[in-house]
Write a protein that binds this DNA or RNA. Structure first.
Length: 263
DNA sequence: AAGTTTCCCAACCGCGGACCC
DNA sequence: AGGGTCCGCGGTTGGGAAACT
């Protein structure tokens, strides 16, 4: 089979973009909007492939980009999101306004990895580096397995410590103890049952008590148990920082579950 | 000051999934 | 149903800048 090349490579520029190319791309997108990247270069008079144009626009030229250093709060949020989502940079970027997946990925690889290692934390698993695996009573979880596990009615507690380690303390369940990392299909959905005890989240200096709904950015919604008093329950995921980021990004109260589906 | 090494980040590459015919 | 095309994602690379010798 094989794929056809995305563009006519022989007649395209590669490497760093010039000011003139940037200007052309910006002018074209301002006039016609984003989209149809394949035909854009020709239409805009650029000797670039569509992918290259898309990347340049998304990662560098977009007007809503926040350039400059990451704040400490952004650091912690990235660590937290990475512990939940893994290398899903686009999802992580979606929760950090003005940041791109590429930027976050680079930042992770150059700064945060080192930072976590210095803290004695494995940046891949978010586990303490010296911690023996598997038979521990507490095990670090991936986002996928946490949600899948939580979708069962089992009561679990997900805690975080100051170092960006997120730990699930499992109630006794012999099956799960043997198979802690089931590769179950993930689908985020509203909590199905009500056993409402709010989760305490400790993030770098503050303790918060939030229900799952709030952590999805749906404060004051009817599902919220800690804001409105309505019952809610089910899974407990640490998703907010004291800075008020709306994890899963939707302060407006619109949650696109599809965008969070994972394998 | 010059050469070398390390760091950082923009850009590229290849793959998978969605969509269309 | 299946093949082709396009888009978006994540991993990797290349080269310029900064730090070090």
């Amino acid at each position: 089979m094989g794929r056809s090349p995305c563009c006519e490579k022989a007649h395209t520029n590669k490497g760093a973009w010039t000011k003139e190319e940037d200007d052309r791309l910006i002018a074209y997108i301002r006039a016609h909007g984003e989209g149809c990247w394949r035909s854009l270069p020709k239409a805009a008079g650029l000797l670039r492939c569509g992918k290259s144009c898309r990347l340049r626009w998304i990662n560098y030229l977009r007007p809503d980009l926040k350039r400059g250093n990451f704040t400490e709060e952004e650091d912690e949020l990235i660590i937290m999101l990475h512990s939940l989502l893994g290398n899903k940079w686009s999802l992580i970027a979606g929760r950090l306004p003005g940041r791109t997946d590429n930027e976050i990925k680079n930042y992770w690889n150059t700064h945060i990895r080192r930072k976590l290692i210095n803290r004695g934390i494995d940046p891949t698993t978010h586990r303490p580096i010296n911690e023996p695996s598997t038979t521990e009573a507490a095990s670090t979880i991936s986002f996928a397995s946490s949600i899948a596990a939580a979708s069962k009615a089992d009561e679990k507690k997900i805690n975080s410590n100051n170092n960006g380690v997120f730990v699930v303390k499992e109630e006794k369940n012999p099956i799960q103890e043997k198979c802690p990392d089931l590769n179950l299909e993930l689908r985020i959905s509203p909590p199905s049952t009500s056993s409402s005890s709010s989760e305490t989240l400790k993030t770098g200096g503050g303790m918060m008590s939030l229900c799952f709904t709030c952590r999805l950015g749906l404060q004051n919604s009817k599902e919220c148990s800690c804001c409105s008093g309505a019952s809610s329950g089910g899974i407990r995921i640490s998703t907010r920082t004291k800075s008020g980021y709306d994890f899963l990004g939707l302060k407006a109260g619109v949650l696109d579950y599809r965008s969070l589906e994972m394998k």
